[in-house]
């Protein structure tokens, strides 16, 4: 339990900064809506005539841009990129920092098993991920509400934030896994952010070119796209299943490797 609280405290400052960043991002994005909105209803007609590839490169998708909630859907992509970067770096750092700061010996001469330490660190990072998610949720609802004329977007935002939570957990477990498995934990956050950027680029390329659609299972950014979630399809069960499976697998291997690995001291 001590480890749990120590970790929460150690990451408090960075978590606050990330929360501010998320709120700022939401605010910045939605403020563009005000500028957009002044051009009126014609925007939708114009958008519908755009070829898909161009809409994708602009990040516009199939949203109702005359509504604040539609605009939020465009913004959502940036929000999940930020939230997943936070998650993957948190996951990698929370394990790797002991070796980086040369505190491994201090920690493991205590009467706790390695599994116990990993569990505490995992729980603590899940709590932080949830805090970031909740802050974004509340912030999003308030900010969108400020710009919106109706209130039927709230359900959508809850669903979107739930999808974001799954992605956060997915990348968190990836970060934790890489830090536990890699022999050079110093590099863990670089490697995992590299993987994150790669999957992100992959999702952009899949969107632009429709020939490689089958690769969509490889990149989590294609799992819960705002346009599917908001157009009433909700969250697709198959992707939920894949995510949970991957999280389970990565967590399993985290314990497996971290129990056995020689720790650098």
């Amino acid at each position: 339990m001590n480890i749990f609280f120590i970790e929460l405290k150690a990451h408090r400052k960075s978590l606050i900064l990330w929360c501010i960043g998320m709120l700022l991002m939401t605010f910045a994005g939605m403020s563009k809506f005000a500028a957009f909105d002044s051009t009126g209803q014609s925007i939708n007609e114009a958008m519908s005539a755009f070829p898909d590839s161009i809409k994708t490169v602009l990040g516009l998708g199939d949203f109702d841009l005359s509504k604040a909630s539609g605009f939020y859907g465009v913004l959502y992509l940036y929000l999940i990129v930020m939230a997943t970067i936070h998650a993957v770096m948190l996951g990698a750092n929370i394990i790797a920092k002991e070796e980086r700061d040369k505190t491994t010996e201090f920690l493991f001469v205590k009467p706790i098993s390695r599994a116990h330490a990993v569990t505490a660190k995992l729980l603590s990072s899940v709590v932080m991920v949830i805090i970031l998610n909740l802050v974004t949720l509340v912030g999003s609802i308030l900010i969108v509400n400020y710009y919106s004329t109706d209130t039927d977007f709230i359900g959508d935002i809850f669903l979107l934030m739930f999808s974001m939570f799954i992605l956060q957990i997915l990348f968190l477990s990836l970060g934790v896994f890489i830090a536990s498995w890699s022999k050079k934990p110093r590099l863990a956050s670089s490697i995992s952010s590299g993987i994150l950027l790669f999957t992100f680029m992959l999702s952009v390329i899949i969107n632009v070119s429709n020939k490689i659609d089958f690769l969509k299972y490889l990149t989590p950014y294609k799992y819960f796209e705002a346009k599917d979630v908001m157009n009433g399809n909700g969250i697709q069960f198959i992707y939920l299943l894949i995510s949970l499976f991957v999280v389970g697998l990565l967590t399993h291997f985290t314990y497996l490797f971290y129990e056995k690995r020689d720790l650098n001291i």
Binding site: G21, M25, S31, I85, M89, K97, D101
Partner: peptide
């Protein structure tokens, strides 16, 4: 302690500021 945990948020921060243009 960790370089990338400073550099990534800083660059993304500038990216967000870029979007604040309309304010």
């Amino acid at each position: 302690k960790s370089v990338i945990s400073i550099s990534l948020p800083t660059v993304f921060g500038f990216f967000i500021i870029r979007m604040l243009g309309s304010i």
